[in-house]
Simulated assay, not measured.
Amino acid sequence: SILSKFSAVDVDREFAEMNEIEDEALVSFLKDEHPQTVAVVLSFLAPAKSAAVLQSLGSVAMKEVAVRMARMDRVVPEAVAGVVKTIKKKYRDYQRRNDDLVTGGLDTLVDILKHMPGDDERQIMDDIEAALPNVSRQLRDKIFAFENVVNLNNGEVRILIDEIKDDHLIALALKGAGDDVRFKFLRNMSQNRATDILMEMNAMGSIRLTEVEDSRRKIVSIMRALDDNGAIRLRGGETLVE
C-alpha cells in the first residue's frame, strides 16, 4: 500500500514545514491531542522547536509526552501518516482563520479611513506601507478598486471621465460591471456619449476577461493619480446629496 511505502525521506519532507510554524500555533494544535500523538510530532521536529513546544504544554502534559517519547522505539508509517494529516488540516484551518481576521481588519480600517481628514489618512497609509508592505498593498487594493467609483460624487466622476479621455476604454471597463458602476459613469456624461458607449459595449459581444481587467487597471491608475493630487477623494466620508 501507499502507507507501507512512507519512507524516511517522506517523513522528513512532511514535517519540514512544521518547523516553520510559530511555536504558539503548534502548541494550540497539539494541546488537545493525545500525548502519544504529541510525542510522535515532537520526535520529528527540530530539537529546539520540540523543546519550546514541550515547555509550553504544561507540567502534566510535558511529563506524559516525555515518558511516551522515552518509550517510543519505532513509529509505524500509518501512525505518521495519520498525524501528518491531522496537523496539516489544523494548520490550514489556522491559516484560514488568520486570513479572515486580516481581511476583517482591513475592511474595518478602510471604513475608519473614510471618516478621517485626507492628511491623517495618508499619514496612516504611509506608516502601514513602511511597517507592513504586504498589508499595505492589500489595503490600497481595497481602497483603489474599480468598483469604488461608486463612492465618488457626481462632480468627481465627471473629473475622472474627462481625465480618461477614451470612451473605448470606458466601454471595455464597464463590460460585466454592476449596474451601480455603469450608472455612475453613464449618468455623468451627455446622453449621446452614454448611448455611444452602450452601443459599443453591445457591439463588442463576448470579450476576454483579461481585456476587461486591463482596462479597469488603467482607470484605477487614473483614479489613484487624481486622488493623490486631491482632485477626487475615493474614500468618501459622509454621503453627499446633490
Rank of each mutant, 00 (worst) to 15 (best):
L109A: 04
Q123E: 11
G104E: 13
M116N: 05
G105Q: 09
P133A: 13
D99F: 09
Q123G: 00
N134I: 14
R137Q: 15
E121W: 02
Q123T: 05
K114D: 00
G104A: 11
L132D: 15
L106R: 08
N98K: 13
M125D: 00
D99Y: 09
P117M: 06
S136F: 11
V110G: 03
R122Q: 10
P117T: 05
A131L: 10
G105L: 12
D107A: 03
D99S: 13
L101R: 15
L132A: 13
N134T: 15
R96F: 12
K114Q: 08
N98C: 09
E121T: 03
E121C: 00
L132Y: 14
L101M: 14
G105I: 10
A130W: 08
N134W: 12
I112V: 11
N134C: 10
I124M: 01
D127K: 01
N134Q: 15
H115P: 05
G118A: 09
P117V: 00
A131C: 11
V110W: 00
D100N: 11
I112S: 04
L101K: 13
D120C: 01
L132G: 10
L106D: 02
D100P: 04
A130D: 08
D127H: 00
T108A: 09
L109F: 02
N134R: 15
N134V: 14
P133L: 14
D120V: 02
L101E: 13
Q123F: 05
L109W: 04
D100L: 10
I112N: 01
V135M: 13
Q123W: 00
L101D: 13
I128C: 00
R137C: 11
R96K: 14
R122H: 07
D120E: 03
P117L: 04
M125G: 00
G118I: 03
I124F: 00
M116V: 07
L109K: 04
L132K: 12
A130S: 04
I128R: 02
S136W: 10
R97E: 13
M125I: 09
L109T: 07
K114V: 01
D107S: 02
R122G: 04
R96M: 11
A130E: 05
T103C: 07
R122L: 07
D99W: 08
G104F: 03
I128S: 07
D120Y: 05
L113V: 06
A130N: 05
V110K: 01
T108W: 10
L113S: 01
T108Y: 04
K114R: 10
S136L: 13
D107C: 02
L106Q: 06
D126G: 05
I124E: 07
V102T: 15
D99Q: 14
R96I: 11
V102E: 14
E129P: 07
A130C: 05
L101G: 10
L106G: 04
T103E: 12
A131T: 12
M125W: 06
H115E: 01
D126T: 03
R122Y: 02
G118N: 10
S136Q: 12
E121K: 02
V135D: 13
L113A: 03
A130L: 06
R97T: 11
P133K: 14
L132H: 15
T103K: 11
D127A: 08
S136C: 12
Q123I: 07
V110Q: 01
A131W: 08
M125V: 04
M116I: 07
R97H: 14
M125F: 03
P133E: 15
D127C: 03
